[in-house]
Structure formats: C-alpha cells, structure tokens
Amino acid sequence: MTVTAPERETVVAPATAPSYGMSERTRKERRLGWKLTAPAVILMLAVTGYPMVNALYLSLFSYRLTDPSGRKFVGLANYGVVLRDSLWWQDVVTTVIITVVTVAIELVIGFIFAMVMNKIIFGRRTVRTAILLPYGIITVVSAFAWKYAFALDSGFVSNWLGWLVGKNYNWFGHRGSALLVICLEEIWKTTPFISLLLLAGLSQVPEVLQEAAKVDGATFMQRLWKVTIPNMKAAIMVAVLFRALDAWRIFESIFIMTAGAQKTESLSFLTYRQSITRVALGIGSAVSVLLFVTMVIIAAIFLKGFKVDLGTVKGERR
C-alpha cells in the first residue's frame, strides 16, 4: 500500500480508483496470458531457438565431422570464404531466378484460379478439388513424377515435343531447360497455395463494389484493376511474401531432378551439400546462417517496404 500511494497521487484524482481497479485486472489477465502461452514458447525455444543459436555458434569454427579434433575457432572467416566464393553467388542467382519466375507466374495463374473458384456456381466442389489437388501431393512424389516425365529414358514429354526440341532432347542436360522443368514443377505444385490465399482476399471485396463500378461505367478490366485488386492488395502481398519465402528455400525438386547439376543448385542445396555431404559443419552453418539472413531481408522488404499488414489476412481490417 505504501508503494502505491505516491503513484495514486500523480494520477488525476477522480479517475484514480476505477483505473487502478482496471489496471489490476488487466495485469492479472496479462499474467494469465503469459502462463497459457509459456508451454508453447518453451517448446519453440527448444526446437527452433536452440538449433539456430547452435548454428550461429558452429559457423564460427573450422570444423569437419571427419576431423573432430581439428576443430578450431576462426571467427567470421567462414563467412568470408562463402561470400568470396563464386559458387555462392551462382546459387544466389539460381535461387533468385527460380523465386522470381515461379512467384510471378503463380501469382497470375493463382489469381485466375481464385477468380474461377470465387465465381463458379456449377460443379464448385469438383473444380475446387481439381485446382487444389497438386498441393496435396508430397513434394518428393511430384518431383519424381516430373522427373520421369522429362527424363531421357522414361520421359514422354520429349516424345510429344519432339517437333520442337528433337526426340532425344536431354531436359536435365542444360541449365536453362533443367531450371525450366524445376520451375514448372514448382508452379504446378504450389499455385493452389497462392490461389487459396488470393481466394480469401477476393472474397473480402464486397460484391456491391463490383455492382457500383458496373453502374459507374467500368469494364471488366477496369473493375479488376481499379476496384478488385486495390481492395485485396494486402492479401496479394501476403500471398506473394509467403510464396517467395517458400520458393527461396527450394530443395526437394532440385535434389531429385538434377541433384544440383548443370548449375541448378539452390542456396538450400548448397547448405545441404556443405553440412551433410561434406560434413563441413562450420562452413555449412555459415551458409545456413546467410540463407536465414537473406530470408529475413526478404521478409523485411515486404513488411516494411510494402507495408504488408499480416492482420488483414485474418479479416482484422478496420
């Protein structure tokens, strides 16, 4: 009581009593909130926080599992090695190409799919299921399916497109064509995800706005660009952000289809090769930390640069 007394004097007199009661209740509520979230927070710290900190720690050492006794503190030298290596930059370029191409194409196709799913009346369930089906297939499985479709021995695509590229075209034998197949597989597989997020945004644009725009004299394209898209901008940015971060980590498709050959290696794949194949834990950790940093930069650009408000996806818009 003696502690609270001077506090109470500083506040405006009449409001003191009730506001004090409220703040006590609020404080209790906040304490309860912390107690309720504590198990989840502890679990997250154990399974996510610890490996991240450990990776950061390991990246400061020259350390190969084949030579545990040779472990030596090298400071930031590993980062210097990675950033000076042209392989890192080549993989950055590969990852950027895959991310930009897939996200751009998926955004367009996903938007068309979302509009179809939003508008369709007959066979709604069938169409929605058909559109969403690829997303339900395990990435490894779909990667194998696409690999077999394009491979020299089992592939039928070369047969179909023989008139264009020659009967025995080796799709995985050139950087461009290999990246093309990888991108196609990514697009086929994850467009449903982006179209789901866009559908959620689309359904938040009231139909009456479309009607008002029709009466105001807007054509379909004018309604799309001047009414629909501006009103679902937040949903679009969130969809692009999620997909970009997802595409930036691409691993399975490359692992299965080319195993990084023909300069199709992505940053995730580089991390894998350093840490697992070469068991160079120091360098591998440095690459994974750098990969993490690039993702933070992408997220920061979206959240700060484009002012994406994640609350809008959940319909918390004022």
Binding site: L209, E211, A212, D216
Partner: peptide, 12 residues
C-alpha cells in the same frame, strides 16, 4: 447512376 443502400463507396 445509382445510390446503394450501404453506399458501396470504394474504401481504397
């Protein structure tokens, strides 16, 4: 030109 019940103003 039409005035709608809930006005249908463009929020953006």
């Amino acid at each position: 030109s039409m005035v709608f019940q809930n006005y249908a103003l463009y929020p953006h």
